[in-house]
Amino acid sequence: MKKIRSLGGSVGRTFLTWKALSSFISLIAVLAFFYWQVGDILFNKSIVRGSILDLGVNWAIVAMPVAMLMISGEFDLSVGSVYALGACGIFKLFQVGLHPLLAFVIIIAACALIGLLHASITLRLGIPSFITTLAGMWFWRSVVNAMWQYTPTAPQSAINYFDNVFGVRLGGGWFYSKFLILVAIFAILWIVLERTPFGNSIFAAGGNYDAALARGSKPDRTKMVLFVLTSTLAGFAGVVSATSAGATMTNTATGLELYMIAAAVIGGASLTGGVGSVEGAFLGTFLLRYINTGVIQMGIESKWFQGIVGVVLLLAAVLNRNFRRRVIKRFT
């Protein structure tokens, strides 16, 4: 009996001190609100597969590394533009007739190099990443715009090459195969952050840079890896988006960077670094997708999407700051 109670206590404690609790609570609250407003319309197969998961997968692939980068104390405002570069760039390479796989390797390598460039400027020259990646946001968007004067197109055969990987309906039609890729990326990133020495160095780099340096935990190397990871996955998400939708636009993912930061913050990340989680960013992304879909289903103007995101963002930040402190004090 005592053992059961202590097990229950330990599960309860783990839950209450869970870093992503605020995003979980917010998600449940938002789902309950929309269920009350529009009923189970948000939970049918085509809405979940299409409106929630389709775009949600592309976004979550970006939100998770963005959160890790924020934990290390840095920002990446260029993810929307790099995402567009991935999407429009791979169409360009398809069009010039490269083998789809070669096109994929080239575009992913290019995005990794962009991350390396952002990291080098930030870390070597001591420019805040907010500035470096803001510059990157505009620069890479211009590159995309210069690449296509009209709507990007690509041979259907090349698109199908990837759509057959990313866009297969699975689970009785509830999701596309790319959702499994997201789950795999999630699992890897979670383990990296929570269960490796490298993950420990991420928290330390953002929590107390000088301490990390003094302990020999190499914070600059850690940040460099994360900049590269973030750009690489942003480009990858763009490729997934363009090939699984079969179309893209030069202005795709404009403004994505701020939603990614919102997802990370809803998931418990702080703007000053040192805290946050992969699962929080994951849940935060799908929360954003549900708000987006929910306001449309409610028939209120979709302009209210941003308004509601703003309110939820604030609520989550308040939960994180005030509620979490007290819970931790009590239960650890």
Partner: peptide, 23 residues
């Protein structure tokens, strides 16, 4: 060398701080 403000990472728990850099 233990400088007061460089010794520990405040947002990290004890075990992670203890082994930081030598996990």
């Amino acid at each position: 060398s233990i400088q007061q403000d460089q010794a520990l990472v405040e947002e990290m728990d004890i075990k992670r701080n203890f082994f930081l850099g030598r996990e």
